[in-house]
């Protein structure tokens, strides 16, 4: 499956407090959280973003708190996936557990610009920037985690295993 969308760019160390500021953590609703996505760095982000858009960021994306509201807000804002140089580990596992597609791909921070049209082949990990013609390769995902994605997230995986 291929994801294609327009790029929103962010820098290094984008933390969960700017992805979804703490005052909004009184909700568990993805759509509501999405209205405040990235408010800490770009207050009008949720108004500008369109369904299917892609976030491209630098290193250590999602550092800070364990709040799953962060990947929920990104999903709720309509973002199809996040591509970054690297991810902080709790954000990384949360994204797999709750079903937000994320890709770790060296070189994307310098090689892809805001507004570019990019596509990601989820099977091969090939990332193509259709605006500047550059290509990138996402790091492979361990088979266990691939299994999580295929099951539809951790809860679906656990319940399926439980049923045998």
């Amino acid at each position: 499956m291929t994801l294609e969308g327009t790029v929103w760019k962010f820098g290094d160390n984008i933390d969960t407090d700017v992805i979804i500021p703490a005052p909004y953590l009184v909700s568990t609703d993805s759509a509501e959280l999405g209205k405040h996505c990235m408010e800490g760095v770009d207050p009008s982000f949720s108004e500008k973003v369109s369904a299917g858009d892609i976030i491209v960021a630098g290193k250590n994306f999602g550092c800070g708190s364990s709040r799953e509201h962060a990947p929920m807000a990104i999903k709720g804002a309509g973002i199809s996936c996040v591509v970054a140089e690297s991810f902080a580990r709790i954000f990384f596992r949360n994204a797999f557990n709750m079903g937000l597609a994320i890709f770790e791909a060296p070189g994307v921070s310098d090689g892809i610009s805001a507004g570019d049209r990019i596509s990601i082949n989820q099977d091969t990990g090939e990332i193509i920037d259709h605006t500047n013609g550059k290509t990138f390769s996402a790091n492979t995902i361990p088979p266990f985690m691939q299994g999580l994605i295929e099951a539809g997230g951790l809860m679906a995986y656990v319940l399926k295993k439980r049923r045998g």
């Binding site: 800070g64 708190s65 364990s66 709790i90 949360n94 809860m155 656990v158």
Partner: peptide, 24 residues
């Protein structure tokens, strides 16, 4: 909660995870 790593001070393996991990 990300600061769950605190209990490492007792000689435990202790780490922050997400809500879905806790549900599972």
């Amino acid at each position: 909660d990300s600061h769950t790593c605190t209990y490492g001070a007792l000689g435990a393996f202790s780490t922050g995870v997400g809500s879905t991990d806790i549900a599972a």
